[in-house]
Computed example of a mutant assay.
Amino acid sequence: MKGKVIFIGAGPGDPDLITVKGRKVIEEADVIIYAGSLVNKDVLCPARDDCEIHNSAYLNLDETDEIITKAVNEGKLVARVHTGDPSIYGAIAEQIRELKKHDIEYEIIPGVSSLFGTASVLEAELTLPEISQSVIITRPEGRTPKPAGESIASFSKHHATMCIFLGIGMIDKVVDELLEGYEETTPVAVVKKATWPDQQIIRGTLKDIAEKVKDANITKTAMIVVGDVLDPGDFNASKLYDKNFKHEYR
């Protein structure tokens, strides 16, 4: 009998932020492959003593595929554990493509994205009435190319809330692109390892955030959030709880 692969979003760092469904799979798995450079290892604590555990930080796609195929052909349950939610920069599509080649059954369990972990520790609502009702999720172009028209500079002209993954190592370039559309006074927050015990929060504006990040020596595993929602001052309340507004969603 063939086994199965279940992709699990482990959440942003705090092991209690994994879903109940995800934790149950970790408890039951015969084999776990986890993104060791990003996933808090405490997430794996419920695993069985006889569970075979691999750190994918030391594996390429072919090696991961080999481990999965062997386990599934032996009828085993494989938990493929990713950081945050695997649908955002999780590289699961290429893994699923290989599973389909081998006719391997799979499932995806969503997780709490580091984006939302970041918003929570910033105590921020990313969509405030009349300030920003859109959130742009993006990354700068690095070794992974981006489609034409998806530059940070072009997105900045919308003045929406922007959440930038994988950009802290090129903070100067990111700021230069953001200034194509936003003002120098636009609030910015950088959060390193949101929800981890050693998380760091740096606040500033586009004028000074790059220098502050360098002074704090933050070079990886950090989210950049840009927009007036971070320091809105006074703002109009939404219609959701307006006593004069009737609708079915309250």
Rank of each mutant, 00 (worst) to 15 (best):
C45W: 00
G84C: 09
E183I: 00
S156P: 12
T144L: 15
G9S: 11
A194D: 15
E177F: 03
L61P: 07
V225W: 13
S132P: 07
E130T: 14
S132Y: 08
H159R: 13
V135T: 08
R250S: 11
L38Q: 09
K243Y: 09
L44I: 04
A210R: 07
E184I: 06
T221E: 11
V188W: 07
R97T: 09
N217K: 13
H158K: 13
D176Q: 12
V81D: 00
P232L: 03
S114M: 06
A79D: 01
H247T: 00
A93K: 08
E211T: 14
G181E: 06
L230C: 06
D42T: 12
I26M: 00
E94G: 05
I68W: 06
H54V: 00
K214R: 15
S238Y: 08
H247I: 01
R203Y: 01
S151K: 04
A119S: 14
S120V: 02
K21V: 02
F245P: 01
I109C: 06
D50W: 09
H159E: 14
Y34V: 07
K239D: 13
H247V: 00
E27R: 14
I209C: 05
E184K: 14
R139K: 14
P12K: 11
H247G: 03
P12E: 03
V225Y: 14
Q95K: 12
P15L: 08
S87E: 03
I202S: 02
K101Y: 02
I202Q: 07
I108T: 05
G11F: 13
T195G: 12
M162I: 13
D228G: 00
T127V: 07
F155A: 10
D198C: 02
E66T: 14
T221I: 11
V39L: 05
H102F: 07
D16L: 06
A35D: 15
I33F: 05
P86Y: 05
A71P: 07
A124M: 12
D228T: 00
S120N: 07
K4W: 03
G11I: 10
G90C: 09
R250W: 04
M170L: 01
S120H: 07
A160R: 13
L99Y: 14
Q133I: 03
G111R: 02
K239W: 15
I152G: 00
E141L: 02
V39F: 04
I108C: 04
Y106F: 14
V43I: 15
D176W: 01
A124N: 10
I168D: 09
